Amino acid sequence: MSWHSFRALTVKSLSVALIVGILNSVPAMSAEKGSVTNLPLPRFVSMKANEGNVRRGPSLSHRIDWVYKRRSMPLQITAEHGHWRRVQDRDGAGGWVHYSLLSGVRTAIVEVELLNLHARPDPSAQVTAQLSMGVVAELRECQLEWCELTAGGYRGWARKGAYWGVEPQDVFD
């Protein structure tokens, strides 16, 4: 093998190694599915009930650690076991909740002092309402950068990132 051939082979090997290294360092989209529902994990849901026990494990025999007391509060399901879903709230606290206490209705909780709702997904569009920190709003539709929210009879669009209950890549209508 000539020096030129050896050099070309080495450069090619290094290029392949570099590409593989880059691909391995890029986080893959989560392809994990729930063992019970076959729905994506993690995923967002909301509290259907006004009150829900959060247990240490997935059964009635497990201790209740605390009680969620806010209907429509957004939660993220991180695991499934039979009729139980492991959830966490925006603070990362969580536990196991019976699936009958949860709803597929998507909601979000405002995390900024005042969130402007616009008439359309455009920062120069008219502001139709403002939501205060802690308000829970229903997510009606989400585009790449904006979601349409409703709360207290008001409806409008807000950029993602100012409320918890939706991932940056979530798109739905």
Rank of each mutant, 00 (worst) to 15 (best):
L60I: 07
R71C: 09
K69V: 13
R106E: 12
I77C: 07
L60A: 06
G95W: 09
I109S: 05
Q88H: 11
A125S: 03
R86A: 09
P123W: 14
V87D: 02
V112R: 02
I77Y: 11
V87T: 08
T107I: 02
D89K: 04
E80G: 02
T78V: 13
H98P: 01
G82Y: 00
A79G: 09
D91F: 14
M73W: 10
R63Q: 11
H118E: 00
P74K: 03
R120T: 07
S100G: 04
R55M: 05
V54N: 01
S103H: 06
G52F: 00
H62Q: 07
T107W: 06
Q76N: 03
V97I: 09
D89R: 04
V67T: 12
D122W: 15
H62L: 06
V105L: 07
A93H: 12
E113D: 05
Y68H: 13
E113N: 13
R106V: 04
R85W: 04
H98Q: 10
P74R: 06
G95H: 11
V54L: 03
V67M: 06
R90E: 09
D122K: 08
G57D: 10
T78M: 04
A79C: 12
W96I: 02
Q126K: 11
V112H: 01
H118Q: 01
A125G: 01
H118C: 01
W66C: 02
P123Q: 12
W96V: 01
R56A: 13
R86K: 14
I109K: 08
D89Q: 03
R90F: 06
R71M: 09
S103Y: 02
R71A: 14
P121V: 13
T78H: 04
N53T: 05
A119M: 14
D65A: 11
W84R: 00
L60W: 03
V54G: 04
E80T: 00
R120D: 11
S61H: 04
L60G: 08
E113F: 14
E80W: 01
P74T: 02
S72R: 12
R63E: 12
V105Q: 10
P123L: 10
Y68L: 15
M73G: 11
S124L: 10
M73F: 13
N53A: 11
L75H: 01
R86P: 15
P121S: 12
R86Y: 06
H83P: 02
M73A: 15
S59E: 03
I77K: 10
V54Q: 03
A93I: 09
S72D: 15
